[in-house]
Design a binder for these strands. Structure first.
Lengths: 339, 339
DNA sequence: ATTGACTTCTAAATCGATTTAGAATATGAT
DNA sequence: ATCATATTCTAAATCGATTTAGAAGTCAAT
C-alpha cells in the first residue's frame, strides 16, 4: 500500500496541507515541523502520487509517440531503437516518461484524438513525417505541443528535427561522379515519406550538378526492405546498358543490391559501386563494407525530446528547426568506375 | 480546452453524476436523458480524463518498461524493436499504453521504486534478465505485477517468457557435428545475462552429447558486439590448431567472426563454418548468408504483454511461463567440415 | 388521504495531491 | 490591558471523474 500525505499527517499529528507545505519547503512552516515531516516522509518512503499530481497540475510528465502502422516503419527503420534511446535518455533526465502506443492499425487520427482528449500526454513526437501528414494537421489544429521528426510538403512552420536527405544523397552522387561514374541507378523508397522524397531529390540534384545523363529507367521505386532492393538491383543490372553505380535510398536496400550483384558474380566496388544511407550497425561489417551516409540517430532523438520538453514547459526554443547533414562514410562498396 | 462531464452537465441541464451514469448506461437514468446526454457528449467530443480516472480507479492503463543502461542492451539487441512492437500492439488492443523510461544510468532499483511508489504504472516488463536480478527481487518484494523476458538463477516462480537458448545453441552444435565438425569454438556474450548463460550451457551440452573434445581455450567471452566477435575470431583462428567451426552467441558476433575469417582469405562455409543466434534481418543478406537461430521477437513481445495484462486484471493466466524454442535456419555459412 | 413501491434524479464523499483564505496562538508595542 | 503583528497552522475548495445514499416525484393500492 503506497504512502500518502494523509498517512504522514497522521503519523506526525498535523494536517495534510501542513505536510504538503512542509515537504514543499514553504516559509510558513516551523523549522521543527518541517524537519520532522521530511524525516517521516523519508522513513515511510513517500513519493507523491503521480496521478493526483497530474490531475491537479494538468501535466502528465509524459510525452507520447504513436507507432505508425502504415508502412512497417518499425521493422524497416533500423534507426528506431537508437532514436528511441535518445528520446528516453533526455526525457528521463527531466523526470518525464515516454509513452509508446499503437494506432490499432486503423484510424491514425483517432489514436491521436483519443490521447489528446483524454489528456494523457503533454506532447507528441511525430515519427517520420509523410509529405501530406494528417497527424501534423491535427496536432496543429488542436494546438498540442509536438515536435516532428521530418518535415512535410507545404507549411513547415512547426518544430522539427530532420535529416538533410537531399544533401546526403547528393554527397553520395558527388562521390561516385568523382570516381568517374556517369551512369547511376537509384533505388528509391516509396516517396510518400518526406525523407524518401528528399533523398530522391538529392539524386536528381546530384545528377544535374555533375552533368550526368538522366535516364528515368534507372530510377526504381522499391519499398523499404532488402528483398525489394535485390529485385530492383536485378532490374537495373539486367538492362542492356546497366549502370556502373547504384545509389540506394537506405542501407537495407543497398544490402539487397549488394547481394544481387554478388550472386551475378560482380565484384562490388570494382565492377559496380553501391551506396546506402543510414549507416546501420552492419554497414561496416558487410563484405565488402558499405559506403553510406551516417546519421546520429540517438542524438537526433535527444534533440527532438529536448525541443518538445521546452515547448511543453513554455521555455524558449532557440533552435526550433534543426536539419542534420549526414556524413558520407566511404567504405569498400564504392570504387572507381570500370573502364 | 478539453470537455469535462461538468461541461456536458451544464449543456443538458442535469447534474454531473447523472451525466456520468447516463454515459455508463446505468438503469436509473431515463432513456430520454440517456440518449440526450450521449448525443451531446458525442457532439462535444467528450473523452473522459485519463488522469481523473486513474486517480479514482487506481489504475493507470499503462505498463512500464525501464530501459536498462547496464550493457548497452538497446544497441546490441536487434531484437528490441520487434519485441517492442509486439508489446505495443497487444497493449493497444486493450487500450493500454506502454511507458518507456530510463534508469538515468544510475540506480536501477531507484528507478523502479519511483515508478512503483508514485503509482505511475499497472505493471512492469523486465527486459533481458540477469542471473542475479535485483529488479525481479524488488518487484516481487513489492508485490507489483510484472512479466520478465528471461529467467533468473534460482527461484523462477514468476511469470516469464523466455527463449530456449540452450536448445538453440544445442541445435547449432548438433548441426555442425552432423556436418563432421569435431573441434568447435564458441564466442560467448558476457554471462551475467541469463540468456547468454543459457546459450553457453547449450554449447557445453552439445559438445558433450556429440562426444566432441572440450577445450576451454576454444571458448571466448566477448561482449555483445561485432568488433568483439571479430577479435575473438582472430584469437580462435590464429591458434595453431584452430577450430573448424565457430558457434557464436549472437548474430552480431557471428558477423564479426565472418568478417575476420574472410579477411584471412578463408571461405566461410567451406574452410570454416560459422553460426549465429537471433536471425536478425540481415542474417539472410550477408555474404555468405548466416546459419542462425530464428526467434519470433514480435510474438514474444506480444506474449509478455498479454500475460502482464492478465496479471494486472487479475484474470487467470493459463501459461504463466513460456519458453520458446528457436528454430535453426541453415544457410550458407555452415558446411561440411574440411578434411 | 396515506402508504408503499418505482422511477429518476441530486447531494455528498472519495481518490491524493495543491492552494487560498482565514483561524489560533504567541509576541511585542503602547 | 489592549491592540497590532507575526508565526504557524487548519478548513475548505479544486482538479475530473465515480459511487453511495438519499431526496423528490409519480403512480397505484388500500
Amino acid at each position: 500500500m503506497p504512502v500518502t500525505l494523509k498517512d504522514i499527517a497522521e503519523r506526525v499529528g498535523k494536517s495534510v496541507p501542513t505536510v504538503s507545505r512542509a515537504l514543499g519547503n514553504f516559509e510558513d512552516i516551523s523549522p521543527e515541523t518541517r524537519a520532522e515531516v521530511q524525516r517521516v516522509a523519508r522513513e515511510m518512503g513517500y513519493e507523491p502520487s503521480a496521478t493526483a499530481l497530474n490531475l491537479k497540475t494538468r501535466r502528465t510528465n509524459t510525452i507520447s509517440l504513436i507507432l505508425p502502422s502504415y508502412a512497417q516503419l518499425r521493422f524497416s527503420d533500423p534507426f528506431f531503437s537508437a532514436f528511441l534511446t535518445g528520446v528516453v535518455e533526455i526525457a528521463a533526465a527531466r523526470g518525464v516518461d515516454l509513452s509508446v502506443s499503437g494506432d490499432l492499425g486503423a484510424d491514425v487520427e483517432a489514436a491521436y484524438l483519443k490521447q489528446i482528449r483524454s489528456r494523457r500526454t503533454d506532447g507528441f513526437i511525430v515519427m517520420r513525417t509523410q509529405r501530406q501528414d494528417s497527424r501534423i494537421d491535427l496536432l496543429r489544429k488542436h494546438d498540442v505541443p509536438f515536435v516532428a521528426f521530418g518535415r512535410v510538403e507545404g507549411d513547415n512552420n512547426f518544430c522539427y528535427v530532420d535529416e538533410d536527405g537531399t544533401a546526403g544523397i547528393r554527397a553520395a552522387v558527388d562521390h561516385l561522379a568523382a570516381l568517374g561514374h556517369r551512369r547511376l541507378g537509384y533505388i528509391s523508397e516509396p516517396t510518400h515519406l518526406t525523407k524518401s522524397y528528399h533523398r530522391y531529390a538529392g539524386f536528381r540534384e546530384g545528377v544535374e550538378a555533375n552533368n550526368l545523363p538522366y535516364d528515368p529507367a534507372l530510377v526504381i521505386e522499391a519499398n523499404f526492405r532488402q528483398d525489394s532492393g535485390r529485385q530492383s538491383a536485378l532490374r537495373l543490372l539486367s538492362m542492356e546498358k546497366p549502370p556502373t553505380a547504384i545509389v540506394c535510398a537506405n542501407d537495407l536496400l543497398a544490402l539487397g543490391a549488394l547481394n544481387e550483384a554478388q550472386s551475378r558474380g560482380l565484384v562490388v566496388g570494382r565492377d559496380v559501386s553501391i551506396t546506402g544511407f543510414d549507416d546501420i550497425l552492419l554497414a561496416e561489417y558487410t563484405h565488402p563494407s558499405l559506403t553510406t551516409l551516417h546519421q546520429p540517430a540517438q542524438e537526433m532523438g535527444g534533440m527532438v525530446a529536448d525541443i518538445l520538453l521546452k515547448l511543453v514547459n513554455k521555455e524558449p526554443v532557440e533552435e526550433p528547426q534543426i536539419i542534420i547533414r549526414p556524413t558520407l562514410v566511404v567504405r569498400e562498396s564504392s570504387g572507381p568506375a570500370p573502364t
